[in-house]
Design a protein around this nucleic acid. Structure first.
Lengths: 258, 258
DNA sequence: CGAACTTTTGAATAGGATCAACTGAGGTGG
DNA sequence: CCACCTCAGTTGATCCTATTCAAAAGTTCG
């Protein structure tokens, strides 16, 4: 089974076998670090020099606290995501990350990454692309929290998670495993847990989803997508622009993220 | 007067004169494009291949609309900002940009930029840094909209704008020129214009700010900062990590963004 | 099997939205 | 130069979405 980062980047670039191999050897997998649920992976102001961490397995949560305890979850960190995507250029994290499930993490050293950039501009492009994708998701998240109501927000989040999990092949055809709590959904979307509970109940009652235990079934994907107003472009990044194609020597068929 | 992009990047890296010169010649200034207030600079799904645009002068607005007309402003685009920071790797914009004031824009071609990256890794690092900074601001924005009340949100936005303007040396010691409207503030923060008006009135009444015409005076900077809970790290990016210093051959004294 | 969460449900409340009317500043044109 | 229009901002009244408080009902797990 390929590393989820590789599975994700394949949505952007069709790698040669040698590039895939190089990517596989990027995280120091033999020296993985494990965390248990509720353990901190990153804390505010933590020093992040010299590289970053890559999530191999499990779910985590990137969040920030206000002085009185209010929590804003910035996003869910899924396998294949970097714990600190800007760790190469920043000193300190302005957020915390905590494990939701059992989690496996590997270090990615600046040195190894920069060497890889040199050897394959296609890999550099794919990673750049990945961060563009993260920025697009952050925008969609802001739109949801800023201008959509609870019903739409929750539809959006479920759709986003399902889409991201499909990319790394960690979702089923009509469902996915959600190890989080309603409180996490609330804190991600700027809602109270009570209202989240009621709104989830409404989504169930209206036949859009159903939940048993930690499994969320998407019963009406089109309906959910319509409510969330997922923008076509929001979660889509298609082939490289011609200019970059020429410069980076890549030749990619456009491929959509589902 | 240096280009605002250069002024901004100087907060990250102390450039050699030759690097500054290279950066100055990056945007095709001689072929600037001008726009009037309310003109569109970028529209959703617009093709952004082959490069990006750099804002030289004036203010613009990055936003997204929902199908029923609700608008979420993603951020204010200030001089020195790229209209589409990920334009080099993405096909289409998932947002629109409209001019607030008279605006001057210049193209930055992929070719020129990539050549610059090759010639100076310090410039590459500074631009990377800049995008990390943008991501940090997006996180702060999400926290404000998701978990802060109207009073705190507005304090946050005013602080952010003032801080960004000081970086490009476009703010005064205790005030700045704000060419936007209250409706823009509302759509940036997920509020109604009525409530924004009332909350601004409260900020004035409590002596934190005062407004005459398009000039916003910061009467109590510390108070404003405390209400907004501006995180020390949120708008700060200090010197390059040692690993990168070695690899990129840069040597930067840490410098805080005010 | 009990302690600590998580979810659900009910009732009361509040922060902010909506509706509507009015004021004031530009801008336009007759 | 004034009548008229439009757009931004203000103010008052009312409504509603979502919060808060409270408690019960499941769940998970040591």
């Amino acid at each position: 089974m390929d590393h989820p980062l590789l599975r994700k980047l394949r949505y952007f670039v069709d790698f040669e076998e040698c590039e895939a191999r190089a990517l596989r050897s990027l995280p120091a997998l033999e020296r993985e670090i494990r965390f248990s649920p509720a353990q901190s992976l990153v804390t505010v102001d933590q020093d992040t020099r010299g590289g970053t961490m890559l999530l191999n397995r499990g779910w985590a949560l990137r969040y920030r606290l206000l002085s009185d305890g209010r929590r804003q979850i910035l996003n869910f960190v899924l396998p294949g995501d970097f714990l600190d995507p800007t760790g190469f250029v920043t000193h300190k994290a302005d957020y915390s990350i905590v494990a939701i499930t059992e989690v496996s993490v590997s270090a990615v050293h600046s040195d190894a990454l920069f060497r890889l950039f040199d050897r394959s501009t296609r890999i550099a492009a794919a990673l750049w692309w990945n961060s563009a994708h993260e920025a697009a998701m952050a925008r969609a998240h802001l739109v949801a929290v800023g201008r959509q109501n609870a019903y739409e927000r929750i539809a959006y989040l479920l759709w986003e998670l399902w889409a991201r999990l499909r990319v790394i092949e960690a979702a089923d055809k009509h469902s996915f495993h959600f190890p989080g709590t309603q409180l996490m959904i609330s804190d991600a979307l700027g809602l109270s847990s009570v209202h989240t509970s009621r709104t989830l109940a409404r989504l169930k009652a209206e036949g859009l989803i159903s939940i048993q235990g930690q499994r969320i079934d998407i019963r009406d994907a089109d309906g959910l997508k319509a409510i969330a107003e997922v923008s076509r472009s929001g979660l889509h990044l298609n082939g490289a622009p011609p200019g970059m194609r020429r410069i980076l020597g890549i030749d990619i068929e456009p491929r959509a993220i589902p």
